[in-house]
Design a protein around this nucleic acid. Structure first.
Lengths: 207, 207
DNA sequence: CGGGAAACAGACTGTATGGTCTGGTTGGTA
DNA sequence: TACCAACCAGACCATACAGTCTGTTTCCCG
């Protein structure tokens, strides 16, 4: 039953994302994607010109969703307080609260699958990933800089590295949780980073 | 020219490690390994019963070297001071000092290639990885516990998570550095973690 | 209501890849 | 020296895979 436009395409993308998160991109065959999405060879290559094309679409969609999450959580964090330091802490805390759901829905992060297997065109596919990483850095860096203007922070503190450290913790925690087969590590690592942020930004926990 | 025993095997392992670190395990063909190691099909399958067998050997060797590094740096850190808090900080600082060399020698961490592509027997191959992660945790945890006995630490501080956070930072920083194609991020992330540790463990920087 | 294009289904193909097989070379040993 | 086993070389094989081709159904538009 044709005539739906993007419905089949999205089914393929959904199935492919699940499989790639589970087994990696290289270990995911298009036949497996076709079977999982209950489509066909014809449908697949109608919507995607090649497997690499699917990979690019996958990364683009994932990165877009990632940035959407960033903005969404950032908005919620900014609504909690006027103090940028508290906003940063709240931002991490919100992810901490949802950590179990996040890690249950995704056993890994799509980025690593494509960063570590660059058989796809080196520049093209990594571009949305770089954009997403920079978006996270910039959004957090604004808040950290603002926090530094309000109250004194350690003078040799690398604010850019601190901003990146949230992403670093996410990726590292995904690997830790997957290696030890215990999703609780995501929550614990985020909680730790939140507490370290509270200390370095001198944010007192409220009742 | 036969008659060397493990020389060929090690050449294969070295070449395979480089290729897998660069392209991932699934994207590395045994033909490519054979070509890179200047050996032959016969030699390869004489030393390894299958590609997965190579993978297991690769992980085992890598994890063993990883634990060796852990012990080596730990010994150097423990030689610097009697204060366990300072030892933890020194441990991270030593890696920080060598960060550029580490990331130059290895564009990534072997663990992620095998954690994210588990087409190899789920338990068998991951075992040395788990062992290495737990070794890092335990060694750091001893020091952190000892530090907690000497001076008061924040009561709700998750010491196990803090111990794991060093591994988490390593893995996350590898991904960040590779994504942004800038190896300096490893050093910066380690430096940041060292500073955060200094704060939470109340270790004053010395002249 | 007729044609054209988008949306599919599935048989088919060329090749890269993991793995096998036969044979040959070297070195230790009886 | 004869022999055996470890070590290796490379042709060969089976298949799994990405990608193609032909045909069919559905919808939209004139």
């Amino acid at each position: 039953m044709p005539r739906d436009g993007t419905a089949t395409r999205n089914r393929i993308l959904d199935s492919a994302e699940r499989l790639v998160l589970e087994h990696g991109f290289g270990a995911t065959s298009v036949d497996a994607v076709i079977a999982a999405s209950k489509s066909s060879k014809g449908a697949f290559f109608h919507h995607f010109s090649s497997k690499d094309d699917l990979g690019r679409a996958l990364v683009a969609r994932y990165a877009a969703a990632d940035i959407a999450h960033l903005e969404q959580y950032m908005a919620r964090a900014e609504a909690e307080s006027d103090d940028p330091a508290r906003q940063v802490v709240a931002f991490v805390r919100l992810f901490e609260e949802d950590a179990d759901d996040i890690v249950a829905a995704q056993p890994s992060c799509l980025y690593v699958s494509f960063i570590n297997e660059r058989q796809l065109d080196p520049e093209g596919a990594a571009e949305p990933i770089v954009a997403a990483i920079l978006a996270w850095r910039e959004r957090l860096l604004e808040l950290l800089r603002a926090a530094g203007e309000r109250s004194a922070l350690p003078p040799d503190l690398d604010l850019e590295a601190l901003a990146d450290h949230v992403f670093v913790t996410f990726e590292g925690a995904f690997i830790l949780a997957r290696s030890l087969q215990d999703g609780a590590h995501m929550r614990r690592q985020l909680r730790l980073v939140r507490m370290l942020l509270e200390q370095v930004l001198a944010v007192r926990a409220e009742a």
